[in-house]
Design a protein around this nucleic acid. Sequence first.
DNA 1: GCACATAATGAACAGTGTTCATTCCATGGC
DNA 2: GCCATGGAATGAACACTGTTCATTATGTGC
Lengths: 207, 207
Amino acid sequence: MNSVHSMATARRDRLKAELRNEILAAARDLFARQGYESVSIRKIAEKCGCAPGTIYLHFEDKDQILSAICAETFAILKQRMAAISKDSGDPLERLRRSGRQYIQFGVDHPYHYIVTFGVAPGAPANKSDADHQAGMECFQSLRECVQSCQQAGQLRFADVEEVAQALWATTHGIVMLLITKAGFPFVEQTRLIETTLDMAIEGIRAR
Amino acid sequence: MNSVHSMATARRDRLKAELRNEILAAARDLFARQGYESVSIRKIAEKCGCAPGTIYLHFEDKDQILSAICAETFAILKQRMAAISKDSGDPLERLRRSGRQYIQFGVDHPYHYIVTFGVAPGAPANKSDADHQAGMECFQSLRECVQSCQQAGQLRFADVEEVAQALWATTHGIVMLLITKAGFPFVEQTRLIETTLDMAIEGIRAR
DNA sequence: GCACATAATGAACAGTGTTCATTCCATGGC
DNA sequence: GCCATGGAATGAACACTGTTCATTATGTGC
């Protein structure tokens, strides 16, 4: 074979990519239904009709499967956040929508959120840089929203970075609470989220 | 033996409680250092010099060990929070001190905090009632602080529970961020904490 | 038809949480 | 002192986990 891009090679690659997608689809469904820890490689293999070992031809390890799913999902979040940050209208209201979007995303995709933002401190070397990169890009949109609020003179604070980080803490906090303390008798979720957003927005608004 | 409370029985009970505490101590240390998932029953058993099976004479399962540790941490925090909630002075300022104390506790005891508040999701049917109870009691002080703010007419919101939970989310968020994202280029820590507290307090203050 | 490269396999390995028949041993009665 | 008793401790065993790797199958190019 003198060419790397023969007809047959292309076909093989397509088939390989197909199985990869089947594995991802199976894993996505099982993770969402039963949680990451409860889903074994063998369960994923069975669901997509291949042997356990085969999965390791497509993914380095179990974590990489979750990472791949996260990458997909976070691409969506990044897109939504970026879209909002480019909207017109009152900057503070844009900031509120941005926060709402962020929180909603975390609540809707708890496992993806945990992997990217909720890693334990003791873990050595932790997750891949790609995971962090995706998360940081989402934060950038929030930063831009705060920036435009300040430029419109609507901020009570001088330091944009400071406010952006405080807002991140707030939204991150409510997501983590709702995710990890699901058993706690929280007030109705939407109402709690709106109150938190209101508190945060009114807390940074210029007087 | 005609009495259930003989001298010998008391001694046996004391020895049993001692081993229980040794197991807890070993588990607390290992969980904090390596994380819940990475610590096996056998590792705990080895560290406190007993057989794996012995642990199941003192705890129903691995989750129950974590629950017991969480209870301890809740107790410490509850004590500190309760002390502040009984202080005198401006209610909103008391609330600010309360939040500061909570955040400081988390930052000072990152591993305990993580073990108690940062557990992964997906737990089937979630935690025991004992965990809920401990959490409620700990949260009660914050609730009381918010309550007295409202009674003093200093609250912009009507629902005390709602505000208390939103404040919890905010403080929890900054603790988790500072702990789990230690590598992120945060603004100077004290300044970030004070800004966040300021944002929250000003966000709920009556106009 | 044959050789070759790659994909797929599934048994095997070291680990996990948990169980349970067995052993140990301090205690109480004689 | 000796023995029976009952709870505490054991550790082998079970069914599972993520992961590896020698082996097998399969589609491709000549």
